[in-house]
Every structure is written in C-alpha cells, then in structure tokens.
Design a protein around this nucleic acid. Structure first.
Lengths: 251, 251
DNA sequence: CGTACTTTTGAGGACCATCAAAACGCGTGG
DNA sequence: CCACGCGTTTTGATGGTCCTCAAAAGTACG
C-alpha cells in the first residue's frame, strides 16, 4: 500500500479565518485572535444528516460553524419534531451545555459542515483572562434569544403564509450576512419537511403554502432546497425588518 | 404640613437579599455580594399593567426582579400579541438591550413588582473585574434560551390541551422554585387572555381547553388567576419533566 | 433501472378561530 | 346598600385553517 495522504485536511489557523474579514463580523485584536487560536482544539467535519449533538447527552465540546448549514431541534416522544433555529457560519453550537447538565436539544447537519471545536472546561479561563470575549459570549446568547423570540411570535401568531414568507426572508438575510456569496445564487439548503417542522405545520399544508409563494414568482423549489428569485418581493411579503444589531462578534 | 415620610421605601441591601437564601439560588462570596451591591443603583416599584420596557425604545437600565410577576411579549402591527415568557423573582429583565440598539420586545408587570435597577454602561466593569458573575450572566441567558426552546416546541407541536397543561405546570414549577411560599397556596396571577396569548390560541378556545383541566380537578380558575389544586396530576397531564440545571445564579 | 426521498395533488374531517352575547365578579360612586 | 360599569369568564353557533390519509409524479443516487 502506498503512503496515504493524511486523513485530516489542513487546519485553518484562526488568524487566517475566512469568516473574520466579512463586514458583518467585528474586528479582533491580535491578543484576542491568539487566545481564540489557542482555545481551538480541532477542526471537525460533519456530513449532511449527521447528529452533531443529541438531546439528553453530555458533550464536553462546543463548536463554531466555519462553513455549512445545520439546525437545532427537539422531538416529543411520539416523534413530533420542532426545529428551533438554524446554525450558519459564525454561529456557536452547544453553549447551553455549559449551563445544563445535559443537552436540551439536538443539532443536525443540513449540508456538509466544518466545525471549529472548543472544550467546555477551558471556559472559565476565557472568562478570567478575556473579558471582551466573555462579553461576546453573552452577546451571542442574547442574539439567539432574540431570534427565538421572533420565531415564537411567528409560530404563535402569524398565519401559515406569513410564517413561510418570514422564515425564508429571515434565512435569506442571515445567509447573505454570513456567507455573502455575491454570486447572486441565493439558495437555502432545506426540504419542505424542514420548513414544516420549523413553522409547526404539516408537510402537506406547508407545500400548499409554499406554492403560493412560488406562484407569485418569489421563490422556486429545487429538489432539496429553495432558490430565492425575487428577494425584494419576498421581504415585502414577509414584512421583513432587518434586526438592528451592531457588528457581530464570534469566537 | 407635618413632616412627611420619605416617598422611597427602605431599600434592601443585597447582603440581606431575601431571595438569596432560597435553595434554588447559588451562594455568593462576600466579594461578589459587595460588587453587586455597588452595582445596584435603585429599587423601583411597578404596578400591575405598567410597561417596564417597550419594544423599539432604548433603555439605559436593566433589572432583576426582587418580587412579583411580569411578562415579556411582542405585538404585530395589527395588534396580535405573543407572550414570550414570564419573569419571576430572581429573573433578569432587559439583558438583550446590551446587544441590540433597541429593545426587541416589551415587558409588562402582571402583579405589583419590585425591581433592582442596574446600569448598562457599567457592564464592562463587571466583565473585567468579576469573571464569575460574568459567567453567571451567560448562564442566565442560556437558561432563558432553554425555556424559549421548550416553549417553541409547545406552540409548534403540542395540541391546545397539551400546551395548556404544560404551561401551567411550567409556571407552577418556576413559582415553587422562585417564591416557594410553602403556604400550599399555589396561585398563578394570570388571566385566560394571558394564557391564550402565550399559547398562540384564541381566548375562546383557551377557555374551552382550560375547562377540561378544571373538569379533571387539576386547577381552578379565579377572577384574575389560576389556582393549582392537584399539582401532581397537572404535572402528569403535562408530562412535565423538571429541567436538569444546577444551582441557579442571579445578579 | 430500481429504490428511496422529495414534491405534489385530492378528499374528508378535526381543531381552532371568529362572531355574538350572556353571566359573573369586583370596585366605584351615588 | 344598591346601581352601574368594566374587565373577565363562559357558552353557543358557524366557518375557515390546517391536519390526516392516501397516492401519484418527479428527482437523485447507487
């Protein structure tokens, strides 16, 4: 057998992180960057459908998404599933594990992902030596809460049509800010089943609702995802208002 | 005119905080207590129905609930309201304001409340000099997120009956942990309208759903609140599982 | 080129919303 | 003390949104 290539792909040093230069993320000092780099213990890949975290288990590590999409969800005993939110590049996964003994939700990869891995036990050190980064952690948690608030408003009080439009607008806006491909190819890697489980609707009714958005020429549905055709029109239909947050930190 | 009593009631020093001795809250060191005491700028009362925070406004201060109940909510332009969560003694109000320019939700008092007031601008100081307290802030944010997750699961995937049972069990459990009156008088200071706006249901249907819980002898409805008659039965109906969290911090 | 997943469509029924109005409790003022 | 007004709870009737069941058509993948 010939000498095989190393299984692990080359690891990206935090100083050259491809996410950091993007306009939506805040600038870091040398010192902060060095700390984060020393804080990162691995770079983990994940394949679509793979479980990244499982409700009820303990997980000694937590992650930041370097690339790809995933989603957080909970399921009831009889199998009913509720998707809570999506995770995109720059988002943190598993912060709750610092507080609860066990994970209270699961996380699954939607596309191929790359995750920067950190260890929980070194968190106290971060809080002791890097107050600005510590504040960033709070920032991140508060942002997640804000998204959940909005989502709860949707599921509780908006009609199916409003919910669908709002979700797609929300995800498109996040995707633009986080991955900003600028290639005009605005795609969301979701199935209609994911949309249904996010909006609290049945698959059948979700399909009929999305059809209305399609008939208006706002989006198009591919086999395993959605393409935004008329973003401005979609935002209008959703009565979307961009959240007023400052430049975004991430670890 | 005779010498009038001072308008402000005597302020409770943090060192003698009535909440701290309760078993669900974690112990603080002298140092931490002194810091929190210096951090507190006022003690503010709030009457039922009063707005504590308003969506879209900036608020330089944030609060910890010393006594009483309140709730967080959002409203759509046409008046549809979604209650996001309730705030009980020991809970923090307005943490999101540290991140967002403007408040993304409103907060209203449900009963008469007493609030400990803090100033946002002194937060960096807390993060610099009190890493344990800083970590507590993250803890609090993560706990809120966890409650929202569960709530979203309810509204998205549970039936009206399941939702109602779950909400009452959830609030009873929180009330027991936070105020623990031990007087066997388990009351929740809500109207059915609040329940409806929390569960994403109409008032009429909420009433018919709560009736089922009443007919089973689990709860009783008073004029402006709900009394838990059979807590064990209610928990069973709700399939309630207590969250596994450690001793709870608060600022 | 079959198999598994996803999207689509139709039909019937359950759950929940809306409309309307009555009954009840409570505080206020006559 | 009673009348009044207001907010809350309750009930009935009707209709719409959304669910469930069932099955077909389309698409990717090995």
């Amino acid at each position: 057998m010939a000498i095989s290539k190393p299984a692990v792909p080359p690891r990206i040093p935090c100083q050259q992180c491809p996410l950091r230069p993007r306009p939506s993320f805040r600038d870091f000092t040398e010192d902060e960057l060095d700390f984060v780099a020393s804080f990162k213990v691995a770079e983990t890949p994940a394949e679509p459908g793979m479980a990244i975290m499982v409700e009820g288990e303990r997980n000694p590590s937590l992650y930041t998404v370097l690339s790809g999409w995933g989603f957080r969800y909970k399921i009831l005993e009889d199998g009913r599933r509720q998707i809570l939110n999506y995770v995109l590049p720059g988002d943190m996964i598993g912060l709750q594990g610092n507080v609860m003994k066990e994970m209270q939700h699961s996380v699954e990869a939607l596309t191929r992902m790359t995750l920067c891995t950190f260890e929980r036990e070194r968190f106290p050190q971060l809080f002791r030596s890097q107050p600005t980064l510590a504040f960033d952690i709070t920032w991140i948690a508060a942002r997640e809460e804000s998204m959940l608030d909005e989502h709860l408003l949707s599921v509780g009080r908006r009609s199916a049509y409003e919910r669908a439009a709002y979700l797609l607008a929300f995800l498109d806006a996040r995707a633009q800010a986080a991955v900003a491909s600028h290639t005009e190819l605005r795609q969301l890697p979701l199935t209609q089943q994911h949309v249904a489980d996010t909006l609290g609707l049945s698959l059948v009714h979700t399909n009929k609702t999305l059809r209305k958005l399609m008939d208006q020429g706002l989006v198009r549905w591919l086999d395993r995802g959605c393409e935004i055709i008329d973003a401005a029109g979609l935002y209008r239909a959703a009565e979307w208002r961009p959240p007023k947050e400052g430049a975004r930190p991430f670890i």
